[in-house]
Design a protein around this nucleic acid. Structure first.
Lengths: 333, 333
DNA sequence: TTGAAAGCGGTACCAG
DNA sequence: CTGGTACCGCTTTCAA
């Protein structure tokens, strides 16, 4: 079923059918109706490849994320998709699993698809890619690029400030020995969170921090918590790189018989919905996923975002049940 | 940067470059090397649209799901993606949000993309689509199509058996008044779960069931639980259509001050990872997402699945902490 | 308001 | 082993 079939059926040229398909204004109503009917009865379905090849562009924007299984990314995707769809665009997703190889493949694919714009929400985004994109003239919205760069649209979360808020919160509750549950710490934006922790340490000389890393998953969080406690049984607080892993950590603590927050406090990051649904509800720091998704889409499509080149986010502390005064593990001096 | 540029640079014809790109065996090593180098230095990136238009097919398979935000669907997607990638295929995702309109759009898009195969894991899949697909000659793997049909590959979960296992489990623990947390009950496969519940009622005449529905989300589960308890304060058990909503329900119960399972038992469905990470861990029924994803992909790509036309799954009961003997709410007769 | 025809960037068949 | 060259299905001038 091709354009030509529809054209023949409705006794017009393919050009006219094409016009109808694209709502060109210059088509007589009667012919338009005839063509529409043909499309209908023939169940014609345009070949998107041919369409974007001929048009030289595709009505779709791409989004690459590290781990869609983590609700944080999912929320951003949702917001971006909604905005894109409202503007008449499709969204193509790619998941990288924090793998550089996978990222490369995804980027390649997006480029091959000739997406109209690309949202890169991957902590493993290597600066080299930025140049590749510039060469391709395709607008890209980044998330979490830390090295300042001119002429790129970047959403930068002030992780360190977020982490500092969390750490200060714990410190003021009397915690002096905390563990950090991280993941893929070699990566930029994540590294940033760890730095936030370490900075806070410097600020509070009597604070001891031990870090461990595992994969970004419930199981990863659980294993990390286990490792941390095994090496350091007297920890009174667990700072997790994100809520997703924190939920895993909570599970491990429960298993061990430790009560949160009576015996040990736990903090997350991102403030995903699940943070309110786990037990105890997680103290976290809020990242506006909806906003992020919208802004990125807005930039990609309209290209005239009111935010020049960088959009800064200062995460806000959200205190819930998982943090409390340092309890029985506290050294009695 | 087009094929022709590469051809010119390496002093060969576009045909040869194409051969190199597709690993055709009949290319002299020296020329292959030259072309490769050209591709490399020019940073040539093939236009996927042109490619699949010319080839008449695309190396990608599509997957349509109802709610990727629910880990159940995510797990299936992951398995399918892994299998597809191993076979050299890309995977295109589409999410429908349980909306028929959205489903139609997704199907249309997949058809337009000329996917090599399609996995439809949507409870709202209307039988009419099956005919559309047959007209398009594209292999489709369905999940949860209940009305028996010849010549389609379908993975059918015996929801009713699963539900019966859950209900029997509760019944044997002394529960006689249970609530059903459902969602979109007008849809086929979900309807099936509700039927499972109702069937069990018939089997146990003294069992009372009240049902409520809400959206498939943590919040939805929570609201449903609230509604159920408000209308029926003496329930001793909550049967949820899936784990995702069950986690939301657990939250509500905790809020209300009810202890699970001491005061009220809760069951899920799917046995997603999160079921082991929530508190209390959920009693559920296991659905092998990995297996499902693999089998679907296998069928789509190799088309000679050892499973003829239907793959039946009999969900297995997994007992955990969220269910126990009917407690204080039990009527003292 | 409509049609004819030249591409868009590849693929693949047919020669050589 | 390599080149020439019809398409693939649709968009988009340019004329009519």
């Amino acid at each position: 079923m091709r354009l030509e079939d529809v054209a023949r059926w409705s006794r017009v040229s393919t050009a006219t059918v094409s016009r109808v398909l694209n709502n060109a204004p210059s088509v007589k109503n009667s012919t338009r109706a005839r063509v529409m009917k043909a499309i209908e009865t023939l169940k014609y379905n345009p070949n998107l490849h041919a369409r974007s090849l001929a048009a030289g562009k595709s009505r779709s924007i791409g989004i690459i994320v590290s781990n869609l299984g983590n609700p944080f990314f999912w929320d951003i995707y949702r917001a971006l998709e909604r905005a894109a769809r409202d503007a008449g665009y499709e969204v193509i997703i790619a998941n990288t699993d924090y793998s550089s190889a996978s990222l490369a493949a995804s980027v390649w694919m997006m480029l091959g698809q000739r997406v109209a714009g690309l949202a890169a929400i991957v902590s493993e985004m290597d600066p080299q890619w930025i140049e590749v994109f510039e060469g391709h003239r395709i607008p890209v919205a980044y998330y979490g690029v830390n090295t300042p760069r001119k002429n790129i649209f970047n959403i930068r979360v002030q992780y360190r400030r977020g982490m500092e808020k969390l750490i200060s919160h714990l410190y003021s509750l009397g915690h002096r020995r905390v563990g950090f549950v991280g993941h893929h710490t070699e990566l930029g934006s994540i590294q940033e969170r760890l730095k936030g922790v370490l900075d806070s340490v410097r600020r509070h000389p009597d604070l001891q921090v031990s870090a461990v890393e595992d994969e970004d998953s419930l199981e990863g969080g659980r294993r990390a918590a286990r490792a941390l406690l095994a090496a350091n049984p007297t920890l009174t607080g667990l700072v997790c790189v994100n809520d997703w892993m924190a939920v895993g950590a909570l599970r491990e603590l429960r298993e061990t018989g430790l009560c949160v927050p009576a015996d040990i406090s736990v903090t997350g990051f991102d403030n995903i919905n699940l943070a309110q649904f786990c037990d105890p509800a997680l103290t976290s720091v809020h990242l506006p996923r909806d906003r992020i998704g919208q802004i990125m889409c807005d930039f990609l499509i309209n290209r005239e975002s009111q935010y020049q080149h960088e959009f800064l986010i200062d995460p806000e502390l959200v205190t819930r049940e998982s943090t409390g005064p340092a309890g029985r593990n506290t050294v009695q001096t």
